[in-house]
Design a binder for these strands. Sequence first.
DNA 1: CTAGGGTTAG
Length: 673
Amino acid sequence: MCSISSYATCSSTLLTSSSSSSCSFPCSSLKTTILTLPTTISNVSVSATPKHVWTRTPRSPVSHTNKLQRRTRTQQQQYEPSYLDRSVDMKELLTSIGQTHNVEQLYALMSPFNNRQLSIRFMVSILSREPDWQRSIAILDWMNEKARYSPSLSAYNVVLRNVLRAKQWHFAHGLFDEMRQKGLSPDRYTYSTLITCFSKQGLFDSSFFWLQQMERDKISGDLVLYSNLIEFARKLCDYSKAISIFNTLKASANIAPDLIAYNTMICVFGKAKLLREARLLLQEMREKGVSPNTASYSTLLAIYVDNQKFVEALSLFSEMNELKCPIDLTTCNIMIDVYGQLQMIKEADCFFWGMKKMGIEPNVVSYNTILRVYGEAELFGEAVHLFSLMQRKGIPQNVVTYNTMINIYGKSLEHEKATNLIQEMQSRGIQPNAITYSTIISIWEKAGKLDRAAMLFHKLRTSGVKIDEVLYQTMIVAYQKAGLVAHAKRLLNELKQQDNVSRETAITILAKAGKVDEAMWVFRQAFDAGEVKDISVFGCIIDIFSMDRKYAHVVEVFEKMREVGHFPDSNVIALVLNAFGKLRQFERADALYKQMYEEGCVFSDEVHFQMLGLYGERRDFKMVESLFEKLDSYPNINKKELHFVVAHIYERADRFNDASRIMSRMKSQSKKK
DNA sequence: CTAGGGTTAG
């Protein structure tokens, strides 16, 4: 099974080119992060809370256990009863602390407790309830300087959390050092806090760094840490890795996933396109005594919508109702979408307008969704009417609302009105984004106003607005549709040296435009510079090489992908297995397939069928049979298809007896049912 | 004392 370390490094026996030392995952230390972030101690503390003057006095961390203090302690223990937490009203104390504006005031407030025994638990409670990071540091300092004991590890953990939440990386680093100097070893809470906070901020390098530190300290995970790692993998869109970690979690004896972990995994399985597994998770939850809630269902509903499985969504929704699972705003919003996508406009409309009666107040998302439904159904009058109703009634609008309306005006061929909306949104303080621009560019292109589109695009390129692949592609397509192929080509060529287009974006555009060599050129450059992090870029390149039958390149990119620690999804592993087959490297295919199984990855049926096919191609029928038996024992696999696949393999190898044996076995199995 | 989930636009 997958250890935490296999999460981080690629332990593949297949990959001859990668060793752990050559792992090029950019594991910068926290220090590097500090350097790259424009936050300095002084400007943050001033700008964030100008009226407060919190400063942290520099001091040596282990200076307070001197003889004098020890003496006072024994004296006080003799003459004074130890101070009981119960006699202090925590709320009152917190309120008073909240009114202090600097260290002096805080120390003055705490002075009655100087050299007295407030329990460490009490202080940790205080610290955890003090939301202000500066104040929590000041309390920590007070404990160090005035109280009779050193703050515990948990005290430091809590303060670290507050400091990290406030994005004070400087202080976080300092606190961590201070803990170590005081002989406190960071525990799983410490590391959980660090890993989570950084991955939450999108600072995956730092998050990864702390994960490695944790492993170095040989600290084992608990549910919190595993959940964090899953969340971490999910943010990187590495769903295979998330599944692998989930299976490790389930395999460890004393950890069981809870409701939220399950809900997260429903989402992960859905994103990995493993819909059957996502659905089965609801079942598994019930068996394990974790009742699915509204979010569990909403997650699955959203997955069905993502995969265009609207009928399944409807049936799941009725199951929800039968089981009396409550419906909330999010559920409603998804269902409006479902009805809309099924062209059930009346139902969508009724659902939207009936929400209030159900006691659910529609929000921006509800309005935006129904607007889009009207637009798709070409009910332009309804859309415009509802939009003006929103404006009249002061229902909040956002950039999505405007983008939707701009799209609708585009559909109704009122491109001037669409254009005016951009001005209107800007004047109302809602900034257009890449979606706004690509929408208006294609509207202008359709209206024959290509010059206008080109001018806008040029303005965007020179003004430093971040341009994503869809926006760039929209302009290329606009040129192509207008027959200006040379312009389209020029844009593609310029991609290699664009300042405000990331190289990851450039690779994706080039690949999708079929510019295989150019895409690879940029990819190699970007990879060597450590710029390729997005898992989808690897998938995209592997896709085009596979289509181009450049199988050695497929393997090369896959190895790089593993080097940076990504796991393959079903699509990637299928293409790589195929490439190994084409290169007649069956052992490598076999090893990869087995390794991914060991890691606890779950792939679509097609991946298993592909491996069966490879064994067949090599005429290794022993392996065909053994894998077939193994797959047949899996509960979540399409048995009928499995039998067809295996029978077909035998047919192609001219082993018709075996083929018919498999087919009759299938028939007898289905009879048993 | 610590963490984490679901919905909208090109």
